[in-house]
Write a protein that binds this DNA or RNA. Structure first.
Length: 436
RNA sequence: GUGGACGUAGCUCAGUGGUAGAGCCCCGGGUUGUGGUCCCGGCCGUCGUGGGUUCGAUCCCCAUCGUCCACCCCA
């Protein structure tokens, strides 16, 4: 009479122990790198008022129009599971009165939610590393921020990513350009495909991004964004490129790079890879000088980016650097009731005396064969055998489990911790090496 | 939301119009207290679900759900 099993929610994945080390590696690199660049961690809620996202991301974007997990809570409030992090981060900076002339370099990691149809590299719950520099007009911060993303790839050992760069200009310049573009597109309305027709009024810049080959000729003939940049944005963009060159960071100018989120202005960038199929954007971001005001704060320039952790982890999997499997350091085995009872306190003592070492006690009984099998599978290089006879004499057997790791020796229970510590000290490096 | 492929043991997969198998995993044994190799044995499935065709379906047909991939969108 087994009950019907409950399936996981579509597009939401379990992270199993086997995959955890890669995530931990990515998280560790993230912490260290952002620390090194002067960024501080901040944590914001996963749920926000729906209006926040409508105002920040734009009502007519796909994300807001059809991908948000929105609901009304018991108090009747319209809430949404965050589809991205920037809106919440900016909201938090405003809510907490952090603006007043101060500048902030902030980061945050966590789950985001978008109701999309899952496929390779795309999930309904996914995770982003989100980095925001608020109160900096650039272009120096733009360059530093992009250098930071490049450092990520270096530290993670990820190659085969390319940087695409563009400038959208100020909101005003963009508006003017948009007029030009819609004019041009309206004149060629007959050549537009279905998607493009839909975008024509709502978000015409996105048409430039179309992958439809039939649209390419039309797009090629369209008024180009770079030519309509305002003078200041152009200077900003030119300077940014010079700085990137000085940093030795290669990039491709991509005049058709338009972000799907409305809040971007001036610098936009995106790192793509060819290794992940259709979902090729691995990190993207840009400047959002107007967003703070849009959300009710005093005018403050800002720039940020988001990195898709699932996609980065997938890239990590393809690389050579497989993290070592997690292994125990010591496995305790006991024969007989009295020994089994003495084992737990001994394990506690060892854990207390040897912080950082993984000490596993055999749980659930079993004969020696079974217990040693477990010891072997735990990956421990060392077993500590508590037998009935030894127990009465106050000793235990220290038994190396791996080839060439020495012979078993008898040790006193009273000084077990020092004996274990010494055993590890005597090993050639690699055996039971402690991770930082 | 649209399209395509695929759903058989925990995992990877064979297979047949007469209600199923392999390998791995797991458990036990190979001298009373010593693992990893080897040998022997054992456990495991409503063949995704519902309906139809048929004397009979895991196999054929339809629907449905799920997974994956692509479009779209984006990290």
């Amino acid at each position: 009479m087994s009950a019907v099993t409950i399936a996981p929610v579509k597009g939401m994945n379990d992270l199993l122990p086997a995959e955890a080390p890669r995530w931990q590696f990515l998280e560790r690199v993230t912490r260290e790198l952002l620390h090194a660049y002067g960024y501080d961690e901040m944590r914001v809620p996963v749920v926000e008022h729906t209006d926040l996202f409508k105002r920040a991301i734009g009502e007519y974007t796909d994300v807001v129009e059809k991908e948000m997990y929105s609901f009304t809570d018991k108090g009747g409030e319209a809430l949404t599971l965050r589809p991205e992090a920037t809106a919440g981060m900016v909201r938090a900076v405003i809510s907490n009165g952090m603006l007043r002339g101060a500048r902030h370099k902030l980061w945050c990691v966590g789950p985001m939610f978008r109701h999309e149809k899952p496929q390779k590299g795309r999930f309904r719950q996914f995770h982003q590393i989100d980095v925001e520099a608020i109160g900096f007009a650039g272009p120096d911060i733009d360059a530093e921020l992009i250098a930071l993303t490049a450092a990520f790839w270096r530290r993670l050992g990820i190659g085969r990513v390319t940087l695409h760069l563009n400038s959208l200009g100020t909101a005003e310049a963009r508006r003017a350009y948009r007029e030009h573009l819609t004019g041009y597109l309206r004149a060629h309305r007959g050549d537009l495909d279905e998607d493009s027709l839909r975008r024509l009024e709502g978000n015409p810049l996105r048409i430039l991004d179309s992958k439809n080959p039939a649209m390419q000729a039309l797009i090629a003939g369209a008024p180009s964004l770079p030519e309509h940049l305002d003078a200041e944005s152009r200077a900003h963009f030119v300077e940014l490129q010079a700085m990137l060159q000085a940093l030795g960071i290669g990039f491709e100018l991509n005049p058709r790079l338009v972000r799907g989120l409305d809040y971007y202005s001036r610098t936009v960038f995106e790192w793509t890879t060819e290794a992940l199929g259709a979902q090729d954007a691995v990190c993207s971001g840009g400047r959002y000088d107007g967003l703070v005001t849009q959300l009710g704060g005093e005018a403050t320039p800002a720039i940020g980016f988001a990195m898709g952790m699932e996609r980065v982890v997938a890239l990590l999997e393809q690389g050579a650097a497989a993290p070592p499997a997690v292994a125990a350091d010591v496995f305790l085995v006991a024969q007989g009731e009295a020994a089994a009872r003495a084992m737990l306190p001994l394990a506690e003592a060892l854990r207390g005396a040897l912080p950082g070492r993984r000490i596993e006690a055999n749980l659930g009984g079993g004969n020696f064969k079974a217990q040693f099998r477990r010891a072997d599978r735990s990956g421990a290089p060392l077993a500590l055998v508590l037998g009935e006879d030894e127990l009465t004499r106050g000793v235990a057997q220290l038994k190396p489990l791996r080839e060439g790791a020495g012979a078993p020796q008898e040790i006193s229970l009273a000084t077990a911790a020092t004996a274990v510590a010494r055993w590890f000290d005597d090993q050639p490096c690699g055996v039971g090496e402690q991770r930082p």
